[in-house]
Nucleic acid binder design. Structure first.
Lengths: 350, 350
DNA sequence: TTGAAAGCGCTAACAC
DNA sequence: GTGTTAGCGCTTTCAA
C-alpha cells in the first residue's frame, strides 16, 4: 500500500496540528483563511492524498458497493454494472465485482469476502435458491438489492427486475396478433422466480385469449444453449401430434440453441416456424433473419439499483426515519425488439 | 457499515485479552489449546467477522486490486477480468472495477479513486496515450500492469498483451497461403501501439513474401463499426484501380461494419471477397459464413496478469530483492479461429 | 481559530 | 501463554 504523505506529515511541515490540516482538507469551518491557504498549498506541494482506508475505519463507511453476479461476460450483467457505476461513481463510490461463475460455493465465498471488506451495500444476482446468506448483511443494516431473480426468502427485500409475467405476455401477444394459435415454449428452470413468472405469463396470455394450454408444447431447459437445442428437437419431433407454428424461447442461449435445431431440421425461420427469443443481444447485427426478442432495459436496471442503494445509504447515515425505510420491489418494463423471425400467418395456415 | 462484534467484544465476554483472541483468530502460536477452543467457539457463537478495513489500515494492504477498463460490456474485457478474478480471489483478493467509458476524464477520476482506496495493485487498459497518471502508483510501489495497449511512457512497466505484429502475420499468412496476393487492410488508430503493431505485421508479412505494399489498400478507421463500414465502402469503390481479393479487418466492430458494407454492395463472402476479422466473438454461432478471425487468449491474459500482480505483491511484502524486481512485457500468442470467410483462390483468380 | 486527545478495529512488539 | 500498549491515518469532540 502507498506510503505517501499523511496528515501528520503535512502538519509537522507546517507546524500546525493534524486537526487543522484535516479541517482544511475537508473544507470545514473554523480555519483562518490564511492558514487554510497555507495548508492547501502544502497539500499540493507534497502530493497529499487522503487515505480512504483510515477514513473508512473512522467513518464506518467504505464508499464501496459489492456486486455479485454469475458471469461478468454476459452483456446483460455488464450493462447493469455499467448502469450502477454511472450512478454511484459520481458520489465517490466504487464497485467491487465478484464473479461467482454460477457456482453457489463461490457465491458464498464472495459474500463472505464482501462482508469482511465491509461494503456499504450489496447487489446480488444469486444462483442460490435460498437467500439466507444475505441475512448477515441485513442484520448489519447493509442494504441489499437483488437483481435478475429473487430467492425464496421470508423477509421483505429490495429488488429490481423486469416484470417477467409481462415479458412473456408481450411476446405472446405479438405472436397471437400475427395469427399464431399453437405456440410452443421453451422454459428455463421454474424453480426460480424468473422462469416461473415467464411460464406464468405464457399460460395467462393463452388463457386470456381463450386458448387452451397444451402441455406437450411446453419444454423445460436450463437456460443453456444445449438444452435449447434439445428442447427444440424434441418439440419438432412430436410436431405431428402436437403441431405449432411458433415458438417462444425464454433465454438468450436457449434461443441460439433452438435456432440451430430448427436449421438442422431443414426448417426455416420464419417461413416454417416463427420464433421469439429472450434477451438476445446480437452485437454483430449479422444474424439472419434478425431475431425478434424480448429485451430488458439493462442500463435502467443498473441506474435504478444505484439510486436505491444511494438512497438507503444516505437514509441510514442520517439515522432518520429508520422505521420508514421501505423495501421495494421495482418492476421495470420489458420490451420487444422486432426482427424478421416472426411471420404473419395467412388465413389458410391458421 | 456493519456493527458486528469486534475482537474487543469477544475478549470481554471471555475475560481474556484482545491479543489472545486475535491470536486465536489468526491461528497464531502461543495460545493454550483450551483457550483457543474457548475463543473459537465464542467466535462462532457471536458471529465474529474480522474487519478487513481495520486490518488493512494496520497491515498497509487492502487485499484489493483495481481494474480500469474502457468498457466492461466487451466480452474481451469481461474474460480478462474473469481470468484475473480466478487467480486472485483464491488468495483473498477482491477486484474493484472501474469502467471509464473510453473517456480520459473518467479514467483519471477512476485512477484517483483507486489510489485513495489504496488498492494493492492496478490493472489498466488505458485510453490515454500518455501514461503519466500511473506514476503515482509506481512511486508508491503499487504494481501496475497494462493490458490491451501500451501508452508512451518513459519507464519500464509491466504489460500483458498479445504480440500484435504476430497476430497480423498469422492472418496474412493464412490469406497468402490461400493464394491471395492483393490484400486490403482496415486499421484502427496507429497512434496506439496496438494499431501500430497490427499495421506493422501486415506490412512485414507482405514484404517477407516478396510482395509490395499498395498504400491504396490500407484504410484507416477508429475501431468502431461505423468506420469499418466506411473504410470497406471506400476500398470497394476504388476496387477497379486497386483490386484486392481479400481484406483483413483489425477489430471486432470494424469487422462487422466491413461485412455489412460488403453485403450492401451485393458482394458475397467468401466468393467475391475473403475476409479475416479480429477479436470476433460470435456467441450466437449463427453468423453465416462463420468468420475467420484472429483471437486473443483473453482468459490467459487475465490469469497471467493475476499471477504477475500476486508475485509483485508478495515480493514487496517480503521486502526481499527489491532491486531485482524486473518489469516484464509478456507477449501472449494470438491464434486463428477458422471459419468459412476465406476461400482458396483458383489459379485463374490469382 | 487552533490543538490535544480519544478512538474506529486490528496487529505486533514487548513485558509479565 | 497471556496481557498491555502503541500505532496504522483519520475525524471529532472538547478545551484552550
Amino acid at each position: 500500500m502507498a506510503s505517501s504523505n499523511t496528515l501528520k506529515d503535512i502538519a509537522e511541515k507546517l507546524n500546525v496540528s493534524v486537526s487543522t490540516v484535516s479541517r482544511a482538507v475537508n473544507n470545514k469551518a473554523y480555519v483562518k483563511e490564511e492558514t487554510r491557504r497555507k495548508v492547501l498549498q502544502a497539500l499540493k506541494e507534497y502530493h497529499y492524498v487522503p487515505n480512504e482506508i483510515a477514513r473508512s475505519l473512522k467513518s464506518q463507511s467504505t464508499k464501496t458497493i459489492g456486486v455479485v453476479i454469475p458471469d461478468i461476460c454476459e452483456v446483460f450483467f455488464g450493462q447493469i454494472i455499467k448502469g450502477i457505476d454511472e450512478v454511484v461513481s459520481r458520489e465517490g463510490y466504487t464497485i467491487i465485482v465478484a464473479d461467482s461463475s454460477e457456482n453457489k460455493i463461490n457465491e458464498a465465498r464472495d459474500l463472505e469476502m464482501l462482508f469482511q471488506k465491509r461494503v456499504d451495500a450489496l447487489v446480488l444476482a444469486t444462483v442460490e435458491l435460498k437467500g439466507k446468506k444475505v441475512f448477515r448483511f441485513l442484520e448489519n443494516e447493509i442494504p441489499v438489492v437483488f437483481i435478475d431473480n429473487l430467492p425464496e426468502i421470508d423477509r421483505e427485500i429490495d429488488s429490481v427486475m423486469i416484470d417477467n409475467v409481462k415479458a412473456s405476455k408481450i411476446a405472446m401477444h405479438h405472436l397471437l396478433a400475427l395469427g399464431h394459435k399453437n405456440i410452443a415454449v421453451i422454459i428455463g428452470s421454474i424453480e426460480e422466480t424468473t422462469g416461473y413468472d415467464r411460464m406464468l405469463g405464457y399460460k395467462e396470455a393463452l388463457q386470456e385469449t381463450g386458448l387452451s394450454i397444451d402441455e406437450r408444447l411446453i419444454a423445460y431447459g436450463d437456460y443453456k444453449e444445449k438444452t435449447g437445442y434439445e428442447c427444440m428437437k424434441a418439440l419438432l419431433a412430436q410436431r405431428d401430434e402436437a403441431p405449432f407454428t411458433a415458438v417462444y424461447v425464454t433465454s438468450e442461449m436457449m434461443t441460439f440453441g433452438a435456432i440451430k435445431a430448427i436449421n438442422d431440421c431443414g426448417l426455416r425461420i420464419p417461413e416454417d416456424i416463427s420464433l421469439i427469443g429472450f434477451d438476445v443481444h446480437d452485437k454483430t447485427g449479422l444474424v439472419v433473419p434478425g431475431i425478434t426478442t424480448v429485451r430488458q432495459p439493462e442500463n435502467q436496471i443498473g441506474t435504478t439499483v444505484g439510486k436505491i442503494l444511494l438512497k438507503h445509504i444516505k437514509q441510514k447515515n442520517s439515522r432518520e426515519a429508520q422505521k420508514l425505510r421501505e423495501q421495494q420491489k421495482v418492476l421495470l418494463e420489458p420490451y420487444l425488439e422486432i426482427g424478421q423471425s416472426c411471420k404473419k400467418l395467412s388465413v389458410s395456415e391458421k
